[in-house]
Amino acid sequence: MYTRDVYTLCIVALMSISHTLLGLLESGPRHGYDLKRAFDEKFGHDRPLHYGQVYSTMSRLLKNGLVEVEAIEAGDGPERKRYAITDAGVTDVERWLATPQKPEEYLQSALYTKVVLALLTHRNAGDILDVQRSEHLRSMRILTDRKRNGDLADQLICDHALFHLEADLRWLELTAARLDRLREAVTR
């Protein structure tokens, strides 16, 4: 189910945080705090990055030579490092952007398994599909509402989720229409 939080989490999890931070550095050197703020503003929405994630990612990128410390500023608190992207980092971002994402094929569907098991055990598989449709629609209502009240970034993020949920629903309808045939096939 895609609720507001879960979906944003999915998007963040699906994208590579290290490549995103690296890409943000391409427009100019930044402190870790500025990087976190830029990330949260553009991509984090309701799920901001933890500082720890930023600093652990930066130390990994440093070790791999994709960023360098351009300056260290002493202050009242701990010293602040300003990170800059290296040429190798730019090449890495370039390669990442140019590589297509692997399409998710959803071949292991829990819902398919439930439907088949319901048919095998002589339960009402149509009910399972109806209840699932309702759950999907509940999520779609939340996303539609957010989209209507949100900015363009919200609209695009919600549309992405809505199209995926809609694809699930098309599968639900098609399966509902084929339940009799599926019952014959699985109970043969």
């Binding site: 149509g126 779609m140 209502r141 996303l143 539609t144 809505l162 949920l165």
Partner: peptide
């Protein structure tokens, strides 16, 4: 409607089969 995106503007749905 048969379109889920249109139905997502509703408060609730009734399914007819």
């Amino acid at each position: 409607t048969h379109e889920a995106r249109v139905a997502s503007y509703s408060d609730r749905e009734i399914v007819v089969r």
